[in-house]
């Protein structure tokens, strides 16, 4: 029982203090790995790989995984499921509470001049933040930087099949705007296997 309370507490704390989402949870996860025997910190790099290869946010994935391991050690499979649930709920509870408060506040002050002034400059700033995240997604998906550093050839730096696929997908998205994004994801997954990306 005490294990589950601890799980909830630790992930609640991670959820409360990790600002900015995604990888901001990581330092907290390292701390948890050091403090408890729930999972090893070496598992964290595997976990990042798994998080990138499965849908959903890293923090949630990690909480589910750690919770399962921890609960499993105490009570077997049912304990694992309970642990996964405890840690995941623990992680998201603080942000749900805070956002509900902020959302209420924004609803009330939507037409307030100060709030609309603030959002007036926030929107281009946030667009830029998203664009810069997009920049790093482009870098990892279209360029092979470790390969380039190893052999210095520009042929290695630019992953031509990936760039071609990117252009085709981008063109497709703009020609057929009604198509659901998941269609492009499925096509790209198949192309990735065929082209051995």
């Amino acid at each position: 029982m005490i294990t589950f309370l601890l799980l909830f507490y630790e992930f609640f704390k991670a959820g409360l203090f990790a600002i900015g989402g995604g990888l901001a949870t990581l330092p907290f996860l390292y701390e948890i790995a050091d403090k408890y025997a729930w999972f090893d910190s070496s598992i964290l790099s595997d976990m990042i790989a798994i998080s990138e290869s499965t849908p959903g946010p890293l923090g949630v994935n990690m909480a589910t995984y750690a919770g399962y391991n921890c609960g499993h050690a105490v009570l077997g499979v049912p304990g694992g499921i309970l642990g996964a649930l405890t840690a995941t709920i623990g992680l998201i509870t603080p942000s749900v509470i805070i956002i509900l408060i902020v959302a209420n506040f924004l609803k009330k002050f939507k037409d307030n001049k100060l709030v609309s002034d603030a959002f007036y400059t926030l929107r281009p700033a946030v667009t830029a933040l998203i664009a810069s995240a997009c920049f790093s997604i482009l870098e990892t998906s279209l360029l092979n930087i470790p390969g380039f550093q190893a052999d210095g050839s520009y042929l290695t730096l630019f992953c031509l099949p990936a760039i071609l696929l990117f252009l085709l997908l981008f063109l497709g998205m703009n020609l057929w705007k009604k198509i659901h994004p998941v269609v492009f994801i499925v096509i790209a997954a198949a192309a990735g296997i065929l082209l051995k990306l």
């Binding site: 990138e52 290869s53 929107r123 281009p124 946030v126 667009t127 998203i130 664009a131 995240a133 997009c134 997604i137 482009l138 990892t140 998906s141 279209l142 990936a162 696929l165 990117f166 997908l169 981008f170 998205m173 703009n174 994004p181 492009f184 994801i185 096509i187 790209a188 997954a189 198949a190 192309a191 990735g192 296997i193 082209l195 051995k196 990306l197």
Partner: peptide, 28 residues
């Protein structure tokens, strides 16, 4: 899985570029 994911990453990149263009029109 690794090849499929590399493909998915390309699609995600294209989708996000597209999304940023839409946001730019509204936000800037």
């Amino acid at each position: 899985v690794a090849h499929a994911l590399a493909g998915i990453r390309v699609a995600v990149a294209a989708l996000v570029v597209n999304a940023v263009i839409k946001l730019w029109k509204k936000g800037v």
